[in-house]
Amino acid sequence: MYFYALIGVGLFSVGLYALINYAHLLRKILALNVMGSGIFLILIALAKRTGETQPDVVPHAMVITGIVVAVSATALALTLMLKLAAETGRAELSEKDRD
């Protein structure tokens, strides 16, 4: 079970790396989703430590909540990205956006 949790940590870090490294907004949104998946994996993997066959279900409910929140945020972010691209022609945050 620790193995799954470790992979969760890995996913979190990989997502964070991509979030930092790439300029394209769609990629940043993907990266946030991957980070989220990593956190969910940690939550659920560690929930198996009950010592019985039945895992602790409270984290499961939390993760379902988290998934729904994630899809809401993703939808909002994608729309915002499209609006921004329609304004500027690029789906990136320009560095000199202040006037």
Binding site: L32, L80, M81, L84, R98
Partner: peptide
């Protein structure tokens, strides 16, 4: 709406999502 507001909102969204995660 408009370029500035959207850029600001996008930056804000990414920051706030990352913070919550």
């Amino acid at each position: 709406g408009g370029k500035n507001a959207l850029t600001g909102a996008m930056r804000y969204l990414l920051a706030t999502l990352l913070g919550s995660l």
